[in-house]
């Protein structure tokens, strides 16, 4: 039985296609990139180790990009997560150094540091009313400065803890698949569920789409934003910790390269910085695309200097595609508004 508020067959398919057009486009870009790199270097792209290597580095870009997506949908931005990655990892490394063993306590303290840093961002943006771009540039320098002062620029080796339980839980391998990729996929699913199926996700969208309206229906905007910054802080610290463990060394500059890459992953994934719309799936694939380009450029046999160039081209193409889609959308809005208006004349 077809319920009357649903529509049937072909019409439904068309609607699904138009509803998910951004996801479809981003997937198409990903597949065509794969095809291009495959044509250039078939042996490398047929080798399973290529994919293992992408799988082992992609989570560092994708993880912070996932929670960043939520912040951007809510109409704000966070640039400090790259420094929070380093902060969280440093706390973990220092705790382990002090205890002399790879204790879960270190990870918990690292995540709590991320939580604290995230809450600070939230308070600066909400309670003090500082624009998030400026506030998080401030905290970005702050936490990076804290890390540099504490370490005096030296790295902290953690290789001796390899093989410990916490290592295996966070960055081990299951049949060759990096565990941190599984963590990333798991968290992506959790974020997707929250964003699309949970009340909190609906609030995130409303806050980004129409803040006045959200406030008028009684949504606590500050609570939504502060929670988002707190979650983002924890996820950033988590990404920093797994990055450090994967490299088995803490570097004081950890996270720097991920900042713009994660922001780019969100944008390439079809989430506009204007807020109100965006998808977790897009960000996930967007992050993979950026990692894929790095690998593809290297296996193509050209120098690594090409990576940034190709990144730039892909980001611009993705943005241009979104711009064109938005224009089509506007035309559609105008047309449909006229149609619904006429329909009322009967």
């Amino acid at each position: 039985m077809i319920e009357s508020y649903k529509d049937a067959g072909a019409a439904r398919l068309i609607k699904i296609l138009s509803e998910y057009k951004l996801q479809i486009i981003i997937t198409a870009i990903f597949l065509s990139l794969w095809l291009v790199f495959y044509i250039i270097n078939p042996p490398a792209l047929s080798n399973v180790f290529t994919y293992y290597s992408i799988a082992s580095v992609a989570p560092f870009t994708v993880l912070p990009a996932l929670s960043l997506t939520l912040i951007i949908i809510a109409g704000e931005i966070d640039l400090s997560f790259s420094s929070i990655m380093a902060l969280g990892a440093l706390i973990t490394a220092l705790t382990w150094q002090a205890l002399g063993e790879a204790s879960p306590l270190g990870v918990i303290l690292g995540l709590l540091a991320g939580l604290g840093a995230g809450l600070l961002n939230g308070v600066l943006v909400c309670k003090l009313g500082i624009p998030s771009l400026i506030a998080t540039i401030g905290t970005m320098f702050l936490w990076r400065g804290v890390v540099l002062v504490i370490t005096q620029g030296f790295s902290i080796p953690l290789g001796m803890y390899r093989g410990s339980a916490i290592f295996n839980i966070l960055v081990g391998r299951v049949y060759g698949v990096p565990v941190h990729l599984l963590w990333t996929i798991g968290l992506a699913i959790v974020f997707w569920l929250i964003l699309n199926k949970h009340k909190f996700g609906a609030y995130i969208y409303y806050v980004g789409d129409n803040r006045t309206g959200a406030q008028m229906v009684g949504i606590n905007i500050h609570r939504v934003l502060i929670s988002l910054y707190a979650v983002h802080g924890v996820i950033a610290a988590f990404a920093g910790i797994i990055d450090t463990l994967e490299m088995a060394t803490f570097w004081p500059t950890l996270g720097d390269i991920y900042m713009l890459k994660s922001v780019a992953a969100v944008v390439v994934g079809g989430t506009p910085v204007t807020g109100g719309v965006g998808t977790i799936y897009g960000t996930f694939i967007g992050g993979l695309i950026l990692e894929f380009i790095e690998m593809g450029v290297l296996t193509s046999g050209v120098t690594g200097f090409w990576i940034q160039l190709v990144h730039g081209i892909v980001i611009i193409i993705a943005l241009a595609a979104q711009g064109i889609l938005r224009r089509i959308e506007l035309a559609k809005v105008r047309l449909l508004r006229i149609l619904t208006e006429e329909s009322e004349e009967k």
Binding site: Y205, Y206, D209, N210, G213, A214, M216, G218, G276, V277
Partner: peptide, 15 residues
């Protein structure tokens, strides 16, 4: 009060 990018049903139940 409405959120333009969101479907009618979400707007009806917003908040």
């Amino acid at each position: 009060i409405l959120c333009g990018n969101h479907p009618i049903w979400r707007n009806v139940f917003m908040g």
